[in-house]
Design a protein around this nucleic acid. Sequence first.
DNA 1: GCCAGTTTGTTCTCACGTTCACAAACTCCT
DNA 2: AGGAGTTTGTGAACGTGAGAACAAACTGGC
Lengths: 243, 243
Amino acid sequence: MNAHTSAERPGEPGTVDGLTARVSGREIPEATVARLPIYLRALNTMLECGTTTCSSEELAVATGVNSAKLRKDLSYLGSYGTRGVGYDVDYLRYQIAREIGVTQDWPVIIVGIGNLGHALANYSGFRSRGFRVVGLLDADVDLHGRQVAGLAVQPFADLEQIVGEQDVAIGVIATPAGAAQDVADRMVAAGLTSILNFAPGVITVPAGVDVRKVDLSIELQILAYHEHRKAPQPQTVPERGVS
Amino acid sequence: MNAHTSAERPGEPGTVDGLTARVSGREIPEATVARLPIYLRALNTMLECGTTTCSSEELAVATGVNSAKLRKDLSYLGSYGTRGVGYDVDYLRYQIAREIGVTQDWPVIIVGIGNLGHALANYSGFRSRGFRVVGLLDADVDLHGRQVAGLAVQPFADLEQIVGEQDVAIGVIATPAGAAQDVADRMVAAGLTSILNFAPGVITVPAGVDVRKVDLSIELQILAYHEHRKAPQPQTVPERGVS
DNA sequence: GCCAGTTTGTTCTCACGTTCACAAACTCCT
DNA sequence: AGGAGTTTGTGAACGTGAGAACAAACTGGC
């Protein structure tokens, strides 16, 4: 089932621990990895505006990041700037895209075509940023065959077939919470090694599989915490003497 | 973020900075705040299953967090556990909800009723976790009056009115990138002090306004980076000797 | 009442991430 | 050509977060 992924494992003992960093000097910290896409997007925007060169300060302002942090982030990729001048926008853009691995499209499947899955399938940002939705799956038979974003919704049982045919590595879970763990298990069994989980709740996967979680209400709750702290009585209290 | 990051230092008399820590001297670290909603959700699930007591170890397993970290997180709220016993699920749940500020519903407005805004308006997780969508706004006149999730889409010009009438503090931006900054400016002018931004790109707001950003394609790109690293030739790359 | 077993709350240490500050290196002007 | 002005890349200091380990405190049995 997961023949293609396990067969391509390098198998050499060079990268044993996550802290070695000796391979080619490239061990990029997680915090930096999380910012690279932000830089990439800003560079694309600059390119559309015709900007050919930018300094770290300009890019920092455009991305809301400290310029020293930005330079250090970029230094993990290599020395792609020119002192006294700045960075070539197109060149730097390509280098970041290459480092992330989005110089070509990644095929992606989405499981759970409810409101959110529907929106994700139609989200144009995926295609323009290195991803191509190649499969929409749902357990609900009423949805099967329905056209969504130019694709027909398929039965969940087709998972293995789609993954195998298209060599998919990344799956998106947009189901209710109750189904998320089962879906994740099936995804792993089918050979997916990266999962983006929109369902609330924790899913567990074996080592070697990456999971990222996006929880919409958690983001709101974090905002609520700070809001709550700004004004002691946030919403229902009618009168408060604001000094 | 400067208003939240002044922890009380040993030796100094508290509340030197004016706005900070005046409630009860507790300054909860951001990393902890981000986890409190996760604990809250797990506790709610436990409560539905009839569990009345749990240890830090059980809650840690349910949330995928180290138990020592969990205990430290909870200790910022106070001493709500009993040594030798554990935590009362309902009591702890209430304390966390109170700390976050979701014991009552927060009214929320959503601007941009496209695919994503539509899905957000219908997302049941908001209502069940302390939020109530009280307004849907869009600049597109064709959408005005359309019923979405039991609410009629209103013109964007109604923003100030809705915010004023319902005492809204939190707004969600689900527009295309180009409109995001304008919408944010109007939101701030209308009095919103917390913004959840789903639009790609950076928005800038004055101090005192909190912004959180959720970027769907960035999450996928982070996964792609790690996937890219697992197998040197991920999908369709034919040759190229990578240095 | 007292002891054994359990679990919390906290302290200490280490790793990671951020920011400052500056030498190295490049361009431009004279 | 040489010096002035910029901007990168990086070493070092600082702050925050994670995890191990342990004393304090509670329950239950005898």
